[in-house]
Design a binder for these strands. Structure first.
Lengths: 227, 227
DNA sequence: TATCTGTCGATACACTGTATCAGCGCTGAC
DNA sequence: GTCAGCGCTGATACAGTGTATCGACAGATA
Protein backbone atom coordinates (compact mmCIF):
# COMPACT_ATOMS: atom_id res chain seq x y z
CA UNK A 1 0.00 0.00 0.00
CA UNK A 2 1.36 3.36 -1.00
CA UNK A 3 2.03 6.06 1.48
CA UNK A 4 -0.58 8.29 -0.03
CA UNK A 5 -3.26 5.79 0.66
CA UNK A 6 -2.20 5.04 4.17
CA UNK A 7 -3.72 7.43 6.65
CA UNK A 8 -1.41 9.48 8.73
CA UNK A 9 -1.05 8.21 12.26
CA UNK A 10 -3.38 10.02 14.60
CA UNK A 11 -1.98 13.15 16.13
CA UNK A 12 -0.37 11.88 19.28
CA UNK A 13 -0.68 14.58 21.83
CA UNK A 14 2.82 15.15 23.03
CA UNK A 15 2.77 13.59 26.43
CA UNK A 16 2.63 16.02 29.28
CA UNK A 17 5.77 15.86 31.37
CA UNK A 18 5.03 14.09 34.60
CA UNK A 19 6.65 13.72 37.97
CA UNK A 20 5.67 12.39 41.31
CA UNK A 21 5.36 15.93 42.50
CA UNK A 22 2.89 16.87 39.78
CA UNK A 23 0.89 13.73 40.38
CA UNK A 24 0.72 14.24 44.10
CA UNK A 25 -0.15 17.88 43.63
CA UNK A 26 -3.02 16.99 41.33
CA UNK A 27 -4.27 14.33 43.71
CA UNK A 28 -4.18 16.75 46.62
CA UNK A 29 -6.11 19.26 44.56
CA UNK A 30 -8.84 16.73 43.92
CA UNK A 31 -8.93 15.64 47.54
CA UNK A 32 -9.08 19.20 48.82
CA UNK A 33 -11.92 20.01 46.49
CA UNK A 34 -14.08 16.93 46.71
CA UNK A 35 -12.72 14.63 49.38
CA UNK A 36 -10.68 11.48 49.29
CA UNK A 37 -13.29 9.59 47.33
CA UNK A 38 -12.73 11.93 44.44
CA UNK A 39 -9.14 10.73 44.15
CA UNK A 40 -9.10 7.98 41.58
CA UNK A 41 -6.17 7.21 39.37
CA UNK A 42 -8.28 7.95 36.35
CA UNK A 43 -9.24 11.38 37.63
CA UNK A 44 -5.75 12.25 38.73
CA UNK A 45 -4.38 11.24 35.37
CA UNK A 46 -7.11 13.13 33.54
CA UNK A 47 -6.34 16.25 35.57
CA UNK A 48 -2.81 15.99 34.24
CA UNK A 49 -3.84 15.26 30.68
CA UNK A 50 -2.44 11.74 30.74
CA UNK A 51 -3.73 8.20 30.60
CA UNK A 52 -4.33 6.40 33.86
CA UNK A 53 -1.74 3.74 33.24
CA UNK A 54 0.96 6.29 32.95
CA UNK A 55 0.86 6.90 36.66
CA UNK A 56 2.13 3.42 37.26
CA UNK A 57 5.51 4.54 36.07
CA UNK A 58 5.67 6.77 39.12
CA UNK A 59 3.76 4.82 41.71
CA UNK A 60 3.21 1.12 42.10
CA UNK A 61 -0.14 1.31 43.74
CA UNK A 62 -2.82 3.73 44.77
CA UNK A 63 -1.80 3.30 48.40
CA UNK A 64 1.61 4.66 47.50
CA UNK A 65 -0.05 7.73 46.07
CA UNK A 66 -1.90 8.25 49.34
CA UNK A 67 1.34 7.84 51.24
CA UNK A 68 2.94 10.47 49.07
CA UNK A 69 0.02 12.79 49.69
CA UNK A 70 0.39 12.40 53.43
CA UNK A 71 4.10 13.04 53.22
CA UNK A 72 3.44 16.15 51.15
CA UNK A 73 1.20 17.50 53.89
CA UNK A 74 3.89 16.84 56.47
CA UNK A 75 6.11 19.06 54.39
CA UNK A 76 3.83 21.92 55.44
CA UNK A 77 4.46 21.16 59.08
CA UNK A 78 7.64 22.58 60.50
CA UNK A 79 7.54 22.32 64.27
CA UNK A 80 9.65 24.91 65.98
CA UNK A 81 9.84 26.65 69.29
CA UNK A 82 11.80 27.32 72.36
CA UNK A 83 11.88 24.36 74.69
CA UNK A 84 10.18 21.00 74.58
CA UNK A 85 6.75 22.27 75.45
CA UNK A 86 6.71 24.91 72.76
CA UNK A 87 7.95 22.42 70.20
CA UNK A 88 5.32 19.85 71.00
CA UNK A 89 2.66 22.52 70.97
CA UNK A 90 3.91 23.67 67.61
CA UNK A 91 3.80 20.12 66.28
CA UNK A 92 0.26 19.67 67.52
CA UNK A 93 -1.03 22.93 66.12
CA UNK A 94 0.83 22.34 62.88
CA UNK A 95 -0.87 19.02 62.32
CA UNK A 96 -4.22 20.45 63.27
CA UNK A 97 -3.95 23.39 60.91
CA UNK A 98 -2.79 21.12 58.13
CA UNK A 99 -5.88 19.02 58.67
CA UNK A 100 -7.99 22.15 58.44
CA UNK A 101 -6.46 22.88 55.07
CA UNK A 102 -6.72 19.28 53.94
CA UNK A 103 -9.62 17.58 55.64
CA UNK A 104 -8.83 14.25 53.98
CA UNK A 105 -5.60 14.29 55.94
CA UNK A 106 -7.63 13.37 59.00
CA UNK A 107 -8.83 10.25 57.22
CA UNK A 108 -5.34 9.01 56.50
CA UNK A 109 -3.31 10.11 59.48
CA UNK A 110 -2.11 7.28 61.65
CA UNK A 111 -3.44 4.73 59.21
CA UNK A 112 -0.20 3.76 57.51
CA UNK A 113 3.45 3.77 58.50
CA UNK A 114 4.90 7.15 57.66
CA UNK A 115 8.51 6.97 56.62
CA UNK A 116 8.56 9.61 53.92
CA UNK A 117 11.30 12.23 53.93
CA UNK A 118 9.08 15.13 54.89
CA UNK A 119 7.46 13.18 57.68
CA UNK A 120 10.87 12.22 58.95
CA UNK A 121 11.96 15.84 58.68
CA UNK A 122 9.05 16.90 60.86
CA UNK A 123 10.04 14.26 63.39
CA UNK A 124 13.62 15.41 63.21
CA UNK A 125 12.60 18.99 63.86
CA UNK A 126 10.63 17.93 66.90
CA UNK A 127 13.39 15.84 68.38
CA UNK A 128 16.01 18.43 67.63
CA UNK A 129 13.99 21.03 69.50
CA UNK A 130 13.23 18.93 72.53
CA UNK A 131 16.25 20.20 74.35
CA UNK A 132 18.05 18.32 77.02
CA UNK A 133 15.26 16.11 78.25
CA UNK A 134 16.28 12.48 78.52
CA UNK A 135 15.37 10.11 75.73
CA UNK A 136 13.46 7.95 78.17
CA UNK A 137 10.95 10.74 78.47
CA UNK A 138 11.27 12.34 75.06
CA UNK A 139 10.28 9.24 73.12
CA UNK A 140 7.06 8.46 74.95
CA UNK A 141 6.25 12.15 75.18
CA UNK A 142 6.40 12.66 71.44
CA UNK A 143 4.47 9.47 70.90
CA UNK A 144 1.78 10.56 73.31
CA UNK A 145 1.35 13.98 71.75
CA UNK A 146 1.24 12.40 68.34
CA UNK A 147 -1.43 9.94 69.39
CA UNK A 148 -3.51 12.61 71.04
CA UNK A 149 -3.33 14.88 68.04
CA UNK A 150 -4.32 12.13 65.64
CA UNK A 151 -7.39 11.30 67.65
CA UNK A 152 -8.32 14.89 68.38
CA UNK A 153 -7.98 15.96 64.78
CA UNK A 154 -10.03 13.05 63.55
CA UNK A 155 -12.80 13.89 65.92
CA UNK A 156 -12.71 17.54 65.09
CA UNK A 157 -12.90 16.98 61.36
CA UNK A 158 -15.60 14.37 61.77
CA UNK A 159 -17.66 16.83 63.75
CA UNK A 160 -17.06 19.58 61.25
CA UNK A 161 -18.35 17.37 58.48
CA UNK A 162 -21.38 16.34 60.45
CA UNK A 163 -22.23 19.96 61.00
CA UNK A 164 -21.75 20.75 57.36
CA UNK A 165 -24.21 18.19 56.07
CA UNK A 166 -27.03 19.99 57.78
CA UNK A 167 -26.43 23.46 56.55
CA UNK A 168 -23.08 24.79 57.60
CA UNK A 169 -23.87 25.84 61.11
CA UNK A 170 -24.02 24.50 64.61
CA UNK A 171 -27.64 25.32 65.34
CA UNK A 172 -28.75 23.62 62.17
CA UNK A 173 -26.75 20.63 63.25
CA UNK A 174 -28.51 20.42 66.54
CA UNK A 175 -31.73 20.64 64.62
CA UNK A 176 -30.74 17.63 62.56
CA UNK A 177 -29.28 15.36 65.19
CA UNK A 178 -30.91 17.00 68.14
CA UNK A 179 -34.29 15.34 67.80
CA UNK A 180 -32.72 11.92 67.66
CA UNK A 181 -30.67 12.59 70.77
CA UNK A 182 -33.66 14.21 72.38
CA UNK A 183 -35.73 11.10 71.86
CA UNK A 184 -32.88 8.85 72.90
CA UNK A 185 -32.30 10.74 76.11
CA UNK A 186 -36.02 10.78 76.76
CA UNK A 187 -35.84 7.02 77.22
CA UNK A 188 -33.94 7.67 80.43
CA UNK A 189 -31.33 5.09 79.54
CA UNK A 190 -28.51 7.60 79.52
CA UNK A 191 -29.07 9.95 82.43
CA UNK A 192 -25.45 10.92 82.93
CA UNK A 193 -24.97 11.61 79.24
CA UNK A 194 -28.17 13.59 79.10
CA UNK A 195 -27.15 15.76 81.99
CA UNK A 196 -23.78 16.42 80.44
CA UNK A 197 -25.31 17.46 77.17
CA UNK A 198 -27.78 19.62 79.01
CA UNK A 199 -25.59 21.15 81.68
CA UNK A 200 -22.05 20.46 80.54
CA UNK A 201 -19.70 23.07 79.17
CA UNK A 202 -19.88 23.76 75.45
CA UNK A 203 -16.35 24.38 74.36
CA UNK A 204 -15.51 25.37 70.85
CA UNK A 205 -13.10 23.35 68.76
CA UNK A 206 -10.04 25.43 69.64
CA UNK A 207 -10.67 25.19 73.35
CA UNK A 208 -11.38 21.48 73.23
CA UNK A 209 -8.20 20.77 71.35
CA UNK A 210 -6.12 22.96 73.60
CA UNK A 211 -7.49 21.66 76.86
CA UNK A 212 -6.83 18.06 75.89
CA UNK A 213 -3.38 18.93 74.68
CA UNK A 214 -2.70 20.72 77.94
CA UNK A 215 -3.55 17.58 79.85
CA UNK A 216 -0.95 15.68 77.88
CA UNK A 217 1.68 18.36 78.18
CA UNK A 218 1.03 18.83 81.88
CA UNK A 219 1.40 15.12 82.39
CA UNK A 220 4.71 15.17 80.56
CA UNK A 221 5.85 18.18 82.51
CA UNK A 222 5.14 16.43 85.79
CA UNK A 223 7.18 13.45 84.69
CA UNK A 224 10.07 15.65 83.66
CA UNK A 225 9.94 17.53 86.91
CA UNK A 226 10.01 14.27 88.83
CA UNK A 227 13.09 12.97 87.06
CA UNK B 1 -49.02 -20.16 25.60
CA UNK B 2 -50.44 -23.08 27.51
CA UNK B 3 -49.35 -23.89 31.00
CA UNK B 4 -47.84 -27.16 29.90
CA UNK B 5 -45.43 -25.41 27.64
CA UNK B 6 -44.42 -22.81 30.15
CA UNK B 7 -41.57 -24.03 32.31
CA UNK B 8 -42.12 -24.15 36.02
CA UNK B 9 -40.64 -21.24 37.88
CA UNK B 10 -37.24 -22.07 39.26
CA UNK B 11 -37.19 -23.44 42.76
CA UNK B 12 -36.99 -20.35 44.90
CA UNK B 13 -34.88 -21.05 47.90
CA UNK B 14 -36.92 -19.94 50.86
CA UNK B 15 -35.29 -16.69 51.88
CA UNK B 16 -33.09 -16.85 54.93
CA UNK B 17 -34.44 -14.75 57.78
CA UNK B 18 -32.40 -11.61 58.12
CA UNK B 19 -31.89 -8.93 60.68
CA UNK B 20 -29.54 -6.08 61.22
CA UNK B 21 -27.87 -8.15 63.87
CA UNK B 22 -27.21 -11.04 61.53
CA UNK B 23 -25.96 -8.73 58.82
CA UNK B 24 -23.63 -6.89 61.13
CA UNK B 25 -22.41 -10.15 62.58
CA UNK B 26 -21.60 -11.51 59.15
CA UNK B 27 -19.85 -8.31 58.17
CA UNK B 28 -17.76 -8.36 61.33
CA UNK B 29 -16.82 -11.95 60.62
CA UNK B 30 -15.57 -11.03 57.18
CA UNK B 31 -13.69 -8.01 58.49
CA UNK B 32 -12.08 -9.98 61.30
CA UNK B 33 -10.94 -12.64 58.90
CA UNK B 34 -9.77 -10.63 55.92
CA UNK B 35 -9.85 -6.96 56.78
CA UNK B 36 -12.22 -4.17 55.95
CA UNK B 37 -11.65 -4.48 52.23
CA UNK B 38 -13.21 -7.92 52.38
CA UNK B 39 -16.48 -6.37 53.48
CA UNK B 40 -18.57 -5.83 50.40
CA UNK B 41 -22.31 -5.90 50.31
CA UNK B 42 -22.15 -8.78 47.90
CA UNK B 43 -19.94 -10.86 50.15
CA UNK B 44 -21.92 -10.08 53.28
CA UNK B 45 -25.13 -11.04 51.54
CA UNK B 46 -23.55 -14.19 50.15
CA UNK B 47 -22.36 -15.17 53.60
CA UNK B 48 -25.97 -15.01 54.68
CA UNK B 49 -27.31 -16.83 51.67
CA UNK B 50 -29.13 -13.81 50.34
CA UNK B 51 -28.96 -11.48 47.38
CA UNK B 52 -27.03 -8.24 47.77
CA UNK B 53 -30.02 -6.01 47.24
CA UNK B 54 -31.83 -7.54 50.14
CA UNK B 55 -29.52 -5.78 52.55
CA UNK B 56 -30.96 -2.46 51.49
CA UNK B 57 -34.06 -3.27 53.43
CA UNK B 58 -31.98 -3.11 56.58
CA UNK B 59 -29.42 -0.47 55.77
CA UNK B 60 -29.57 2.45 53.41
CA UNK B 61 -25.93 2.58 52.57
CA UNK B 62 -22.69 0.75 53.12
CA UNK B 63 -21.56 3.49 55.46
CA UNK B 64 -24.47 2.68 57.69
CA UNK B 65 -23.31 -0.90 57.84
CA UNK B 66 -19.88 0.27 58.94
CA UNK B 67 -21.48 2.47 61.58
CA UNK B 68 -23.41 -0.50 62.87
CA UNK B 69 -20.24 -2.54 62.98
CA UNK B 70 -18.51 0.11 65.05
CA UNK B 71 -21.45 0.31 67.41
CA UNK B 72 -21.42 -3.45 67.77
CA UNK B 73 -17.81 -3.32 68.87
CA UNK B 74 -18.65 -0.65 71.43
CA UNK B 75 -21.10 -3.13 72.87
CA UNK B 76 -18.07 -5.18 73.90
CA UNK B 77 -16.69 -2.24 75.84
CA UNK B 78 -18.13 -1.76 79.28
CA UNK B 79 -15.99 0.72 81.16
CA UNK B 80 -16.13 0.26 84.90
CA UNK B 81 -14.01 0.96 87.90
CA UNK B 82 -13.72 2.78 91.13
CA UNK B 83 -13.13 6.47 90.69
CA UNK B 84 -12.60 8.57 87.63
CA UNK B 85 -9.07 7.38 86.97
CA UNK B 86 -9.98 3.73 87.04
CA UNK B 87 -12.95 4.35 84.77
CA UNK B 88 -10.96 6.22 82.18
CA UNK B 89 -8.27 3.58 82.31
CA UNK B 90 -10.90 0.93 81.82
CA UNK B 91 -12.33 2.80 78.87
CA UNK B 92 -8.92 3.11 77.29
CA UNK B 93 -7.98 -0.51 77.76
CA UNK B 94 -11.41 -1.61 76.64
CA UNK B 95 -11.08 0.20 73.35
CA UNK B 96 -7.57 -1.06 72.88
CA UNK B 97 -8.46 -4.67 73.48
CA UNK B 98 -11.45 -4.37 71.20
CA UNK B 99 -9.13 -3.13 68.49
CA UNK B 100 -6.90 -6.12 69.09
CA UNK B 101 -9.85 -8.41 68.51
CA UNK B 102 -11.06 -6.39 65.53
CA UNK B 103 -8.18 -4.69 63.83
CA UNK B 104 -10.45 -3.01 61.31
CA UNK B 105 -11.92 -1.13 64.25
CA UNK B 106 -8.78 0.98 64.25
CA UNK B 107 -9.51 1.99 60.66
CA UNK B 108 -12.95 3.28 61.48
CA UNK B 109 -12.67 4.71 64.95
CA UNK B 110 -13.00 8.44 65.13
CA UNK B 111 -13.88 8.61 61.47
CA UNK B 112 -17.63 9.05 61.74
CA UNK B 113 -19.99 10.43 64.32
CA UNK B 114 -20.90 7.69 66.73
CA UNK B 115 -24.38 7.99 68.08
CA UNK B 116 -25.36 4.33 68.20
CA UNK B 117 -26.99 2.96 71.35
CA UNK B 118 -24.03 0.83 72.40
CA UNK B 119 -21.61 3.67 71.88
CA UNK B 120 -23.83 5.92 73.92
CA UNK B 121 -24.06 3.22 76.57
CA UNK B 122 -20.29 3.12 76.80
CA UNK B 123 -20.23 6.89 77.18
CA UNK B 124 -22.93 6.69 79.78
CA UNK B 125 -20.97 4.13 81.76
CA UNK B 126 -17.93 6.36 81.70
CA UNK B 127 -19.75 9.46 82.81
CA UNK B 128 -21.69 7.61 85.44
CA UNK B 129 -18.47 6.31 86.93
CA UNK B 130 -16.60 9.58 86.92
CA UNK B 131 -17.69 10.41 90.43
CA UNK B 132 -18.07 13.87 91.76
CA UNK B 133 -15.61 15.70 89.56
CA UNK B 134 -17.09 18.84 88.06
CA UNK B 135 -18.45 18.75 84.55
CA UNK B 136 -16.03 21.48 83.53
CA UNK B 137 -13.26 18.96 83.99
CA UNK B 138 -15.06 15.74 83.23
CA UNK B 139 -16.03 16.68 79.70
CA UNK B 140 -12.62 17.69 78.44
CA UNK B 141 -11.03 14.84 80.36
CA UNK B 142 -13.13 12.20 78.66
CA UNK B 143 -12.61 13.88 75.33
CA UNK B 144 -8.86 13.91 75.83
CA UNK B 145 -8.66 10.27 76.81
CA UNK B 146 -10.82 9.37 73.86
CA UNK B 147 -8.66 11.30 71.46
CA UNK B 148 -5.49 9.81 72.85
CA UNK B 149 -6.83 6.28 72.64
CA UNK B 150 -7.98 6.71 69.08
CA UNK B 151 -4.58 7.88 67.96
CA UNK B 152 -2.63 5.38 70.03
CA UNK B 153 -4.71 2.45 68.86
CA UNK B 154 -4.39 3.47 65.24
CA UNK B 155 -0.66 3.68 65.54
CA UNK B 156 -0.40 0.40 67.34
CA UNK B 157 -2.48 -1.48 64.80
CA UNK B 158 -0.66 0.16 61.93
CA UNK B 159 2.64 -0.94 63.38
CA UNK B 160 1.36 -4.42 64.01
CA UNK B 161 0.35 -4.73 60.39
CA UNK B 162 3.65 -3.41 59.16
CA UNK B 163 5.44 -6.01 61.20
CA UNK B 164 3.21 -8.75 59.91
CA UNK B 165 3.88 -8.09 56.25
CA UNK B 166 7.47 -9.05 56.74
CA UNK B 167 7.06 -12.31 58.52
CA UNK B 168 5.28 -11.93 61.81
CA UNK B 169 8.14 -10.75 63.94
CA UNK B 170 9.91 -7.63 64.99
CA UNK B 171 13.39 -8.56 63.89
CA UNK B 172 12.13 -9.47 60.47
CA UNK B 173 10.49 -6.09 60.35
CA UNK B 174 13.68 -4.31 61.06
CA UNK B 175 15.18 -6.37 58.30
CA UNK B 176 12.58 -5.12 55.88
CA UNK B 177 12.40 -1.46 56.76
CA UNK B 178 15.73 -1.27 58.49
CA UNK B 179 17.86 -0.98 55.37
CA UNK B 180 15.79 1.91 54.10
CA UNK B 181 16.03 3.74 57.40
CA UNK B 182 19.68 2.84 57.61
CA UNK B 183 20.36 4.43 54.27
CA UNK B 184 18.17 7.39 55.08
CA UNK B 185 19.94 8.03 58.33
CA UNK B 186 23.28 7.59 56.64
CA UNK B 187 22.57 10.79 54.73
CA UNK B 188 22.99 12.67 57.96
CA UNK B 189 19.84 14.65 57.39
CA UNK B 190 18.13 13.32 60.49
CA UNK B 191 20.73 13.20 63.24
CA UNK B 192 18.36 13.56 66.15
CA UNK B 193 16.03 10.89 64.76
CA UNK B 194 18.94 8.60 64.10
CA UNK B 195 20.24 8.93 67.59
CA UNK B 196 16.82 8.23 69.04
CA UNK B 197 16.42 5.09 66.97
CA UNK B 198 19.92 4.03 67.93
CA UNK B 199 20.03 4.96 71.60
CA UNK B 200 16.40 5.58 72.54
CA UNK B 201 14.30 3.28 74.66
CA UNK B 202 12.52 0.44 72.90
CA UNK B 203 9.21 0.07 74.63
CA UNK B 204 6.79 -2.65 73.75
CA UNK B 205 3.25 -1.86 72.73
CA UNK B 206 1.78 -2.25 76.20
CA UNK B 207 4.30 0.08 77.76
CA UNK B 208 3.98 2.66 75.03
CA UNK B 209 0.23 2.76 75.36
CA UNK B 210 0.32 2.91 79.11
CA UNK B 211 2.96 5.58 79.37
CA UNK B 212 1.10 7.88 77.01
CA UNK B 213 -2.15 7.23 78.81
CA UNK B 214 -0.47 8.00 82.10
CA UNK B 215 0.58 11.38 80.79
CA UNK B 216 -3.00 12.20 79.98
CA UNK B 217 -4.35 10.91 83.27
CA UNK B 218 -1.65 12.67 85.26
CA UNK B 219 -2.48 15.88 83.49
CA UNK B 220 -6.12 15.45 84.35
CA UNK B 221 -5.29 14.62 87.93
CA UNK B 222 -3.25 17.77 88.28
CA UNK B 223 -6.15 19.82 87.00
CA UNK B 224 -8.56 18.16 89.39
CA UNK B 225 -6.19 18.69 92.29
CA UNK B 226 -5.89 22.37 91.41
CA UNK B 227 -9.62 22.95 91.34
C1' DT C 1 -61.47 -15.52 45.22
C1' DA C 2 -59.43 -11.26 43.44
C1' DT C 3 -56.68 -7.37 44.25
C1' DC C 4 -53.24 -4.92 46.50
C1' DT C 5 -48.75 -4.42 48.72
C1' DG C 6 -44.41 -5.13 49.83
C1' DT C 7 -40.34 -7.70 49.28
C1' DC C 8 -36.77 -10.28 46.60
C1' DG C 9 -33.25 -10.68 43.56
C1' DA C 10 -31.87 -10.34 38.30
C1' DT C 11 -30.16 -7.05 35.67
C1' DA C 12 -27.86 -2.91 34.69
C1' DC C 13 -24.86 1.19 35.21
C1' DA C 14 -21.11 3.79 36.16
C1' DC C 15 -16.96 3.42 38.20
C1' DT C 16 -12.92 1.44 40.54
C1' DG C 17 -7.69 -0.45 40.63
C1' DT C 18 -4.77 -2.73 37.89
C1' DA C 19 -2.79 -6.66 34.23
C1' DT C 20 -1.80 -7.23 29.71
C1' DC C 21 -0.08 -5.99 25.45
C1' DA C 22 0.35 -3.86 20.69
C1' DG C 23 2.61 -0.30 18.74
C1' DC C 24 5.27 3.75 18.68
C1' DG C 25 9.55 6.73 19.37
C1' DC C 26 14.05 6.82 20.64
C1' DT C 27 18.69 4.95 21.43
C1' DG C 28 22.74 2.60 20.44
C1' DA C 29 25.41 -0.75 17.47
C1' DC C 30 27.07 -1.83 13.34
C1' DG D 1 22.58 5.25 7.56
C1' DT D 2 20.19 1.34 8.83
C1' DC D 3 18.21 -1.62 11.90
C1' DA D 4 17.42 -4.14 16.18
C1' DG D 5 16.09 -3.58 20.61
C1' DC D 6 14.13 -1.29 24.46
C1' DG D 7 11.10 1.42 27.18
C1' DC D 8 7.18 3.95 27.43
C1' DT D 9 2.27 5.02 26.35
C1' DG D 10 -2.26 4.33 26.22
C1' DA D 11 -6.16 1.00 24.52
C1' DT D 12 -8.32 -2.69 26.03
C1' DA D 13 -9.80 -5.88 29.35
C1' DC D 14 -11.10 -7.97 33.80
C1' DA D 15 -12.96 -8.61 38.05
C1' DG D 16 -15.03 -6.29 41.41
C1' DT D 17 -17.53 -2.32 43.68
C1' DG D 18 -22.00 0.39 45.47
C1' DT D 19 -26.41 1.07 44.23
C1' DA D 20 -30.91 2.26 40.93
C1' DT D 21 -34.39 0.08 38.59
C1' DC D 22 -37.98 -3.02 37.98
C1' DG D 23 -40.46 -7.50 36.83
C1' DA D 24 -42.37 -11.01 39.35
C1' DC D 25 -43.75 -13.49 43.07
C1' DA D 26 -45.87 -14.35 48.07
C1' DG D 27 -48.69 -13.10 51.50
C1' DA D 28 -52.17 -9.99 53.34
C1' DT D 29 -56.50 -7.69 52.62
C1' DA D 30 -61.05 -7.03 50.97
Amino acid sequence: MLVWERPEPPDRPTPVPLSRERIVHAAIGLADADGLDAVSLRKVAAALGAGPMRLYGYIATKEELLDLMVDAVYAEIRPAGDGWRAVLLSLAEGIRLAAHRHEWFADLIGGRPQLGPDTLAAGEAVLAGMGGAGLDIVVPAVAAVNAYVIGAVRREITERRAERVSGMDKEQWQLAFGPYLERTFATGRFPALASVVRDGPHLDADQTFRSGLDFVLDGIEARIAAS
